[in-house]
């Protein structure tokens, strides 16, 4: 097997995110989700930020969680913009970034999200 060593920023970063509204009954579809992300980037980084290519690889409507892909140099910006978002359409909301990794495989199983059974 050949060993590949790469330094510096990875070509792509994958983020596993969850959109949480204060009103628990709200859900959004994938297009609105994309708009929310774009609004977050626009408000924090302006038009240049909103133009950053961000791909939604997977979206689950019930839990409002998604896997995003963004170029390595833009990862910090996207993460910061998602953190700073507090309102969408006048409703308070928050992005919970669960995992960030340059490898998509790492998002498949995460020890941070292990649910340990407790006595109810």
């Amino acid at each position: 097997m050949k060993r590949i060593v790469s330094k510096g920023d990875a070509p792509y970063y994958y983020l596993k995110v969850l959109l949480e509204f204060e009103d628990k009954t709200m859900t959004v579809d994938v297009l609105t989700f994309r708009t929310v992300i774009m609004k977050a980037m626009m408000s924090m980084y302006g038009e240049i930020g909103a133009a950053v290519p961000i791909d939604i690889l997977k979206y689950d409507v019930e839990t409002m969680s998604a896997i995003l892909r963004v170029a390595g140099s833009n990862m910090v910006k996207l993460w910061g913009a998602l953190t700073m978002l507090s309102y969408y359409d006048e409703k308070p909301c928050a992005f919970r970034v669960e995992q960030v990794s340059p490898f998509l495989m790492a998002l498949a199983a995460s020890s941070r999200q292990l649910l340990l059974h407790t006595k109810e």
């Binding site: 949480e20 204060e22 910090v76 993460w79 910061g80 998602l82 953190t83 700073m84 507090s86 308070p92 909301c93 928050a94 919970r96 970034v97 960030v100």
Partner: peptide, 15 residues
């Protein structure tokens, strides 16, 4: 709703 996770806050520090 205004709280953010520790890694998110660390990223804000990078910003």
């Amino acid at each position: 709703i205004e709280l953010r996770g520790p890694h998110d806050v660390a990223n804000l520090g990078v910003l």
